Computed example of a mutant assay.
Amino acid sequence: MSSDILPFRIEIPQADLDDLQTRLDLTRFAEELPDEYGVSVKRVRRLAEYWRNGYDWRAWEAKINRWPQFTTVIDGQRVHFLHVRSSRSDALPLILTHGWPGSLVEFLDVIEPLSRDFHLVIPSLPGFGFSAPVLESGWGTLRTARAWAELMNRLGYERYGAVGNDGGSMVSPEIGRFAPANVVGVHVTQIFSFPTGDPAEFVDMTEEEQAAMGVLQRFWEEMGAFNTLHSQQPQTLAHALADSPVGLLGWMAQLFDLELDDDFVITNVALHWLTGTAGSAIRFYYENAKAGWQPTEPTTTPIGLASAKGDFQSIQRFAERDHKNIAQWHTYERGGHYAAHLSPAVYAGDVRAFFTDLLGD
């Protein structure tokens, strides 16, 4: 297997953009009843109209191309990543991992503030964006974590931190488990620790914990269908997502908060569309569901949480069961699920403070 690291630049062919425009022009929108049955036609129409007549992919292409990009092949899979070196010679490297339906676009607004103090490696998850469609099975959380450890090793980083949001909040702790001698700490925006069903786990729950349980229950009862479908039959959905950009927009919009700006939403959707990875990306859920892997021991690498009101609410008693070295537990009033985009200064400040405290700088 080649360990070459090759320079990369995003250059979507104009023919692909013209084809997208034609498909947007020919969209057949769904009908809907007045009640809420999911992502509304009104919202999809508005976003699609902006995509057709206002959105500028080339501007976003240039925004991403502003940063050094590379590809390399790890475990048979092409991996695309940004690699931004700090001017500080003693800077700690960080590897930042996104989730679905996001992309590395999640972290664009924190590159400048974080790169003052850290070397940044921001990969596209295998099967997402320019990390090419995954063509073989097994690319879930664990295989990705091992690949990220190899990527950091290949870049010459022996000591580094792991940072994640959404799916990246699952991958990053596993990098620490896989390479504990290398990972100094893990910073995440969610800790996905759930009840096991043991009644003893619910004894003496605080009001805050009970409220978090309520948020979790409502999410799975009202918004969990995507997870079930991705985990069971991703290919069944992939046919529609590969053929209709507005269909892809409607499906991905269910997990893009209403407070997000249209450019952020459309860029994430367009990146999946233009790279042909809409179906490949959702298989991440299937691989995790079919792996059936459960850690027998808690993680020991220091882990820090920076959650936001309005996002998935982590529950500390369950987190402490799965992670024995929780070094930080912060909750912010705003930021939502995409805190690095919505509150970049707060997010970057939390990441900086977490690793500074760990290193004693």
Rank of each mutant, 00 (worst) to 15 (best):
D4E: 15
R9P: 03
R9S: 12
R9W: 04
E11P: 02
P13E: 09
Q14D: 15
D18I: 11
T22H: 12
L26V: 07
L26W: 11
R28G: 04
E31R: 14
E32A: 13
E32M: 10
V41W: 01
Y50P: 00
W51N: 04
R52K: 09
R52H: 01
N53P: 07
Y55F: 15
Y55P: 04
R58F: 11
A62G: 12
I64Y: 05
P68Q: 05
F70M: 04
V73S: 13
D75L: 07
H80D: 05
F81R: 01
V84H: 00
R85E: 01
R85S: 01
S86W: 03
L94N: 00
W100Y: 13
W100C: 07
L104W: 09
V105F: 15
E106D: 15
F107S: 00
V110I: 15
R116L: 12
D117W: 12
H119T: 00
L125Q: 08
L125K: 03
P126D: 05
F128G: 05
G129A: 05
F130R: 01
A132W: 04
V134C: 12
S137V: 10
T141Q: 08
T141W: 09
T144V: 14
A145H: 12
E150V: 14
L151T: 10
M152H: 07
N153G: 14
N153W: 00
N153I: 00
L155G: 03
E158P: 05
R159G: 01
A162S: 15
D166Y: 00
D166G: 01
G167T: 12
V171Y: 11
S172T: 00
R177K: 10
R177H: 08
R177Y: 07
N182I: 01
V184M: 07
V184S: 03
F192S: 06
T196N: 05
M205V: 13
M205P: 12
E207Y: 10
E208T: 15
A211K: 13
V215N: 10
W220L: 13
E222Y: 03
A225P: 05
L229M: 14
H230L: 06
H230G: 08
S231T: 07
T236G: 13
H239R: 13
A240I: 12
L241C: 07
D243K: 07
S244C: 13
L248N: 10
L249Q: 06
A253T: 15
F256I: 11
F256T: 11
F256E: 10
D257W: 03
L258I: 13
E259P: 08
D262I: 06
D262N: 10
D263T: 08
F264R: 01
I266Y: 09
T267W: 07
N268D: 03
A270S: 14
H272N: 11
H272W: 10
T277D: 06
G279I: 06
R283V: 01
R283K: 11
F284Y: 15
Y286L: 11
Q294Y: 04
T300D: 12
P302Y: 02
D311S: 14
D311P: 05
I315M: 09
Q316W: 06
F318G: 11
F318R: 10
H323M: 09
I326H: 07
Q328H: 09
H330W: 14
H337C: 01
H337E: 03
L342G: 00
S343Q: 15
S343N: 09
A348W: 05
G349E: 09
R352N: 08
F354N: 02
F354A: 04
L359A: 09
D361N: 13
